[in-house]
């Protein structure tokens, strides 16, 4: 009995080692596959999140953008007042931004701002036909433009949404 048990333990040990090796191999292959993905290429319809150059930040996250555009957060990390500026309602980029950042539909967003007004007297962010101009001019302003509409040096890019 003792020798049979020992034999079984050895077999289990072999199987365990084989399983570990197999899993490791799969993970390594997956990693290679991930690494082998096509490099990121800039496209004209990339949405650039741009901020006024006076704001002393270099990058942001979608969650922070959401908090700023829903006016849950009012300041940048450097203390500058954050001024979210939307593209005009109905524009393609506004819809894309809403989908990628706030996750709301148009009617849900309207309902959200009606609620905010009744609760806190908070107005929705202003809209501007040329967000690039607004971001260039307004200290603390943040908005979004397609890469094809962006001009170097006008504002600071802090995030790219693809």
């Amino acid at each position: 009995m003792t020798s049979r048990s020992t034999q079984r333990f050895r077999e289990y040990g072999q199987y365990s080692r084989m399983a570990v090796v197999a899993i490791t191999a799969v993970l390594v292959l997956l990693q290679f596959r991930a690494d082998a993905q096509e490099p990121v290429v800039d496209k004209p319809d990339d949405i650039l999140i741009i901020v006024n150059k006076a704001v002393n930040i270099d990058q942001t996250q979608v969650d922070e953008l959401k908090a700023i555009f829903l006016k849950r957060k009012a300041n940048w990390s450097d203390g500058t007042k954050a001024i979210p500026i939307n593209a005009p309602e109905g524009s393609k980029i506004r819809e894309a931004f809403r989908r990628l950042v706030t996750g709301m539909t148009r009617s849900r967003e309207q309902s959200f701002w009606q609620t905010q007004m009744i609760k806190h007297g908070t107005n929705r962010p202003p809209e501007f036909a040329n967000p690039l101009k607004a971001v260039f001019k307004l200290r603390g302003a943040v908005s979004y433009v397609y890469r094809s509409d962006y001009r170097k040096g006008v504002a600071k890019i802090i995030l790219v949404l693809r």
Partner: peptide
């Protein structure tokens, strides 16, 4: 004026 309310400027 174009921006409307909320720009805080």
């Amino acid at each position: 004026d174009e921006l409307g309310g909320g720009s805080g400027q």
